[in-house]
Simulated scan of single mutants.
Amino acid sequence: MQMILAYWCVLIAAFMPVAFVAYAKFAGGSRRMDLADNHHPRAWLEQTEGAQKRAYWAQLNSFEAFPAFAAGVIIAVISGGSIGAINVFAVLFVLLRIAYGWCYITDRATARSLVWFGATACTIALFLVAAIG
């Protein structure tokens, strides 16, 4: 049996927070994290500013969004929901969450909120697919 696309999306979403925090630690910003900072990475991240701080916040929000999304995919599949619909909502969720991180890092607050709403709607849609079965 082949793994459905939506399951790959769960894997991508699970590691999306790592990508955002990697940006916060090693990409643009006032300073990059070094080995000494790695003894207390959360304290270091709290002291960052600008895009680095927003990337850290995108990481935290990604952790918050992940459980409901993963549960929605799994529940929709085991409930016998349409695999096509599940795949569409899962892929759209991942794309919107990537856009969410970009909006957050680049300080586009209104767009970020709209994209967040869209990704949340995808999660809700997964549960609706499960309910319809």
Rank of each mutant, 00 (worst) to 15 (best):
A36H: 15
G84F: 09
L114N: 14
P41H: 11
L5D: 05
A109Q: 15
L126P: 01
A109F: 15
Y104W: 09
A51H: 08
C9L: 07
A19Q: 06
M33K: 07
A22I: 12
I12P: 00
W102F: 12
A36C: 08
N38W: 14
S30T: 14
C103A: 15
N61F: 08
L95G: 10
W116I: 03
A119T: 01
P67Q: 06
D107Q: 09
F20W: 13
A125M: 08
I12D: 00
F93Q: 00
G101E: 07
V129A: 01
A99P: 01
Q2R: 12
A70D: 03
L35I: 14
A76M: 03
V115T: 13
A90K: 00
Y104K: 09
G28K: 09
L126E: 02
M1C: 05
A36W: 14
S62A: 15
E49K: 13
P17Y: 05
A76Q: 02
A14C: 08
E46Y: 15
S62R: 05
A121H: 01
G28E: 10
P17C: 04
V21E: 11
W116M: 12
W8V: 03
F127E: 02
A51M: 14
V21F: 10
W8Y: 13
Y7R: 06
N87E: 05
L92N: 01
V18T: 12
W57D: 14
R32P: 06
V91K: 00
I83Y: 07
E64P: 05
A55M: 06
A22W: 14
T120E: 04
A55Q: 04
A58S: 13
F117P: 03
A13Y: 02
G80K: 03
A43R: 11
I86D: 01
L114C: 13
A130N: 03
Q59K: 14
G118R: 00
A85R: 11
R97W: 00
A71F: 12
W102M: 11
A27S: 15
F89R: 04
A90T: 02
R97P: 00
I12Y: 01
T123R: 01
F63H: 15
A24D: 06
H40C: 13
S82K: 04
F89Q: 05
F69T: 01
A121C: 07
I74M: 08
A55W: 07
T106S: 11
Q2P: 12
R97I: 02
I98V: 13
A85E: 09
A68E: 09
A51C: 06
A19F: 09
F117E: 04
V18E: 12
Q2A: 12
A24T: 06
N87A: 06
R108I: 08
L96T: 04
R31V: 11
F127W: 05
